[in-house]
Design a protein around this nucleic acid. Structure first.
Length: 394
DNA sequence: AAAAGGGCCAACCGCGTCCAG
DNA sequence: TCTGGACGCGGTTGGCCCTTT
């Protein structure tokens, strides 16, 4: 493949932007919008290629860009999302609305990557490194469990995403095929979470789909009230009987735009869910839950490394409900998002993070190894739980 | 005080994807 | 269905600035 660079034309300026150029670009976009980037430079009187203009706008001139140091919360978000998404900076940036992907990427490469390495966590895989975990068997096992959970979840997501896509294709082919697809979805959920089903009553029969629109990714909803097994933000009784998945079909495909950290319901219209942009799911990282009905089971299930021993994570922050499954209690306190992870971060902060020392007073006891790893991944899971619904990934 | 080294960040490059014709 | 233009994304680079020697 390969296309010639858009700035091959002689006479086009490259390199740092001058204030005059910024002003021209700003003024033009404010008045006309950017429209076609290709055509913009000529209209705006800039000797730049459209790409350069776009970059300058999105990374610097855009009015909604927050500049300056990253807050601790932002750091946590980046790290946790990177654990789930990898180097998909644009996707990560959607969770930090006022930060650009470029900025996040730079910050990661220059600060966070090093800090994680210092913590003994591989910044690429986010797995604790063996040499840093200590030699205690329990610690190693715990780390193995945690990474196993993440890997299992990734695989699960990939499988479900694939099935959603397939179901969409089928639904487009014919109404009959659509029913088939749903059957497969149910089957998939059943197989993926069969262990879970062993300990919970079977879900009620799924009603026929009202429309061929898929509302995917209803799971991981933020529950501000802290109810572990709660229903979707729409309300209604809690369905503990359907821990399978929450892929639902709804009449109206809606984009629900809710701010990060608030009650959120991820909805993706059928075009996105089926034939649309699934790039974000390519590596199977983001979380997808499906259900056979409109019920949204607020649960994420992970096998441990033992695999015969399912761990059920409440996807909300709140008290663990022992009545839900035979599972173990949550492995670490997810209730303190900041404390656990922040301590980890601050503990390993470089000198350049001294501005965050407000929290350092809270650093007290630390259970090295297992607790750290638990906190690390639990916070990642919590973050997924609270991910913004308008993200292309969740 | 000057040179060297490293960190940081804005900008560029090339590839992948989307979409209209 | 195919093709090419346009855009978006992630990796990389160049150069400024700060710190260290």
């Amino acid at each position: 493949m390969g296309r010639s660079p858009c700035c091959d034309k002689v006479g086009l300026k490259k390199g740092p932007w001058t204030p005059e150029e910024d002003q021209k670009l700003l003024a033009y976009i404010e008045e006309h919008g950017h429209g076609s980037w290709r055509a913009l430079p000529g209209k705006a009187g800039l000797q730049r290629c459209g790409k350069s203009c776009r970059l300058r706008w999105t990374n610097y001139l855009r009015p909604d860009i927050k500049r300056g140091k990253f807050s601790l919360q932002e750091e946590q978000t980046i790290i946790q999302l990177h654990a789930l998404l990898g180097n998909r900076w644009s996707a990560i940036a959607t969770h930090l609305p006022k930060r650009t992907d470029n900025e996040i990427k730079n910050y990661w490469n220059t600060h966070l990557k090093k800090r994680l390495a210092k913590m003994g966590i591989d910044p690429v895989t986010h797995k604790p490194r063996c040499d840093a975990l200590g030699s205690v068997d329990g610690q190693n096992k715990s780390a193995a469990n945690l990474s196993h959970m993440a890997q299992w979840e990734s695989a699960r997501l990939e499988a479900e995403a694939r099935l959603v896509r397939e179901s969409k294709l089928r639904s487009q082919a014919s109404f009959h095929s659509q029913s088939q697809a749903q059957q497969q979805l149910g089957t998939s959920s059943a197989s993926l979470l069969s262990l879970l089903k062993q300990t919970t009553p079977p879900p009620p029969p799924s009603p026929p789909p009202p429309a061929p629109c898929l509302d995917v990714f209803k799971a991981w909803q933020w529950q501000s009230q802290g109810s572990v097994w709660s229903k979707s933000s729409i309300g209604g009784p809690l369905d503990l009987e359907s821990p399978t998945s929450t892929l639902s079909f709804s009449e109206n495909a809606v984009h629900s735009v809710v701010g990060f950290g608030h009650n959120s319901t991820a909805k993706i219209d059928s075009s996105e869910a089926g034939g649309g942009d699934w790039r974000g799911y390519g590596n199977g990282n983001p979380t997808l839950s499906t259900s056979s009905s409109d019920e949204k089971a607020e649960v994420a299930a992970f096998p441990t490394a033992d695999d015969d021993d399912m761990v059920i994570f409440p996807t909300t922050q709140g008290p663990w409900s022992p009545s839900t499954t035979t599972a173990k209690p949550p492995p670490a306190a997810s209730s303190s998002f900041v404390e656990g992870f922040t301590d980890l971060l601050l503990e390993n902060s470089d000198d350049d993070d001294k501005n965050n020392n407000d929290n350092s007073e809270e650093e007290e006891e630390e259970d090295e190894g297992e607790d750290d790893a638990n906190n690390y991944w639990n916070n990642i899971l919590n973050l997924v739980d609270s991910s913004p619904p308008d993200s292309p990934l969740f």
